[in-house]
């Protein structure tokens, strides 16, 4: 598979170097997990990759072109609930399609498909305050997958959920990704989450962050936490990172 996304950035904020010539690439339709300690610049990386923040030096390219939300189809699943409280579930999923001016009937078809895919049929007219935290993240995921995205960025999307919901959501995201195949960059600080989800894991070092390790995850799916390959990789990652 060809390289879809190229990252080569140096990022400084008021003299604080967050990334020093950080370089990696993401292949088309790859599920890449970025693993890093809290405070190592994971969210900054997400903001750079979606064009929310300009790079100090270098930059991010998609299909050889500098990342640009107006030209590329990007989507972001944030850690915090990011639904618009004045819009119901269906209109929240529609945000990306509306901005990209997808024709009404085409958008309607995709909305129906996405709402069914995340299991929110019957909740289309509910407002965010009426649904649970897990359901809100489902809506956010549906919103991200609704556009034909070049890149979907997920920044610790399940960090605020309880353990059971988190596991269910991980399985869910995999199921949707396997069905729709988009390029996903999933940022997390959880080893297990990364190993469970990713095709490939890159590990960020402390600031200024560089790539400390790059692992292809070969554990067969559906992945089992007790699989020897899982345990082995977990051990190697743990040693690489040190105490979390």
């Amino acid at each position: 598979m060809k390289n879809k996304i190229q990252v080569a950035v140096t990022q400084r904020f008021n003299g604080l170097t967050v990334f020093d010539r950080l370089q990696f690439s993401v292949r088309e339709n790859e599920f890449l997990c970025v693993l890093g300690k809290s405070g190592c610049g994971k969210t900054t990386l997400a903001n750079l990759m979606t064009g929310l923040v300009p790079a100090t030096q270098g930059g991010v390219t998609i299909d050889g072109e500098p990342v640009n939300p107006k030209r590329h189809e990007l989507a972001f699943v944030f850690q915090e609930p990011s639904l618009w409280p004045w819009r119901n579930v269906r209109d929240n999923v529609n945000i990306g399609l509306e901005i990209k001016q997808v024709p009404r009937d085409e958008a309607g078809r995709r909305l129906d498909e996405m709402i069914e895919l995340v299991g929110l049929q019957g909740f289309e007219n509910y407002y965010p305050y009426q649904i649970s935290g897990g359901m809100k993240q489902r809506v956010a995921i549906a919103r991200a997958f609704a556009v034909d995205a070049d890149l979907i960025l997920m920044d610790e999307p399940f960090a605020a959920l309880d353990a059971q919901t988190r596991q269910a959501m991980q399985a869910e995201v995999l199921r949707i990704w396997e069905r729709l195949k988009h390029t996903v960059v999933f940022i997390t600080h959880s080893l297990e989450e990364a190993i469970y989800l990713a095709e490939r894991i890159i590990v960020l070092s402390d600031k200024p962050a560089t790539i400390k390790g790059d692992f292809v995850v070969e554990v067969p799916r559906p992945r089992d936490f007790a699989h020897p390959g899982f345990i082995e990789l977990r051990k190697r990652l743990g040693e690489l990172i040190g105490v979390w």
Binding site: T50, L52, P69, R71, A75, F76, F78, S82, K100
Partner: peptide, 15 residues
């Protein structure tokens, strides 16, 4: 965050 959702999808300022 609400603004960022729109920005990521490429929304214009007036939108």
């Amino acid at each position: 965050l609400h603004k960022n959702v729109a920005l990521v999808h490429g929304a214009s300022r007036s939108w």
